[in-house]
């Protein structure tokens, strides 16, 4: 008895489908063979990522593990010639680095708090400037091409070159800043010191913002250009003000790019070493001492590599925790990304 129509395909149809499946399998097999056969196929993806993995291991992972190992050693100039002879000191370096009552521990905590403040202030200012620049250049302002190039100049300059120029400008006796404020405008009577005392912290913030805001600008500009213009047009027709459009359309629609940018930029700023090193030399003033230069000072000025390693390890753990919390709580999840 023949199968009822619609329940099962006729025999001819089933044969045709089987033939098609076989043909597809043969083509797929052909492709795999062309790619190099069974084991080669399995190895191929690993071969592709191997160079990057080896370099990552050599440049990041192994030094990081060595840094953690050093933190448990009494590695000083007496043992640096032969690391294996450096005595194991257990948690001694951590205790010294973390003891708030000790000379070094108190310095570490002060530097840590200062670095957090420096990061938050610099990040907020860099983001605000970057957002302003990006919104400005997304609108139909004249000379957009020129302004875009101009805004990116600090990012294109090597960090050292920019910081050296700022160090000259902030020089107390003949720097351009004092010449402008004291000699030309007469706003100040005495020439203030910018690279010494409390002002040194703000100089650090200014140079950091100058250096990094173009990155924020670039990322935000790219994100803004993905927002369809008709959304704004519809909002404008409904009578939404520019500020309303910014808070209800722009910010939510670039949220994902914004969050990634803030994480990357925050980590860069928190770990900043080049700018204070160029501005202040191998020893920053106390008022502007950040954690990275402090680790450098302990390791290379005082030759206490074990203590420097312990501070680096503490910093690593701290940043890992902060980044993990940020990614878990703030960053968009896979589902949200698909949405």
């Amino acid at each position: 008895m023949a199968a009822p129509q619609g329940v099962r395909a006729p025999r001819e149809e089933r044969r045709r489908r089987r033939r098609e499946k076989k043909a597809q399998a043969a083509v797929a097999n052909q492709v795999v063979q062309t790619a190099g056969g069974g084991w080669r196929t399995r190895i191929f993806p690993y071969a592709l990522i191997a160079p990057a993995s080896v370099m990552e291991l050599l440049i990041h992972i192994i030094p990081m593990i060595l840094g953690v190992c050093i933190a448990f050693l009494g590695l000083t100039q007496l043992t640096i010639g032969n690391w294996t002879e450096a005595p194991f000191v257990g948690m001694e370096n951590f205790i010294e680095g973390l003891d708030p009552a000790g000379a070094i521990g108190s310095q570490f905590y002060a530097a840590l708090l200062r670095t957090v403040a420096y990061t938050l202030i610099s990040l907020a200012l860099a983001w605000a400037l970057g957002m302003f620049g990006a919104v400005l250049l997304t609108s139909k302002v004249r000379g957009r091409g020129f302004l875009r190039t101009l805004f990116l100049t600090p990012y294109a300059l090597p960090q050292y070159v920019g910081a050296i120029a700022w160090a000259f400008m902030f020089n107390q006796s003949d720097g351009a800043v004092n010449r402008f404020l004291v000699d030309d405008l007469g706003i100040l009577d005495d020439r203030p010191f910018w690279l010494l005392g409390d002002n040194a912290f703000w100089v650090l913030v200014i140079v950091t913002v100058w250096q990094f805001w173009p990155f924020a600008f670039l990322m935000l500009l790219a994100a803004l250009q993905n927002i369809p213009t008709d959304v704004y047009e519809a909002a404008a027709m409904d009578g939404a003000s520019t500020w309303k459009q910014f808070t209800t359309i722009t910010l939510p629609m670039i949220r994902q790019a914004n969050l990634v940018m803030l994480l990357i930029l925050g980590l860069w700023i928190f770990n900043q070493f080049n700018i204070p090193y160029v501005l202040f030399g191998s020893g920053s003033p106390d008022e502007a001492m950040l954690v990275s230069p402090l680790i450098y000072e302990q390791s290379f000025n005082y030759w206490n590599f074990g203590l420097g390693g312990a501070m680096s390890t503490l910093l690593l753990v701290l940043l890992l925790v902060v980044s993990a919390v940020y990614i878990r709580l703030v960053m968009p999840k896979g589902k949200q990304l698909n949405d």
Binding site: I61, I65, L66, C69, G81, N82, W83, T84, E85
Partner: peptide, 17 residues
């Protein structure tokens, strides 16, 4: 990973006086 690091350390350290 640790063994690679240890080997690297040994290689780096093979320089004593």
């Amino acid at each position: 990973v640790l063994s690679v690091a240890a080997l690297s350390t040994a290689a780096l350290a093979g320089c004593g006086s």
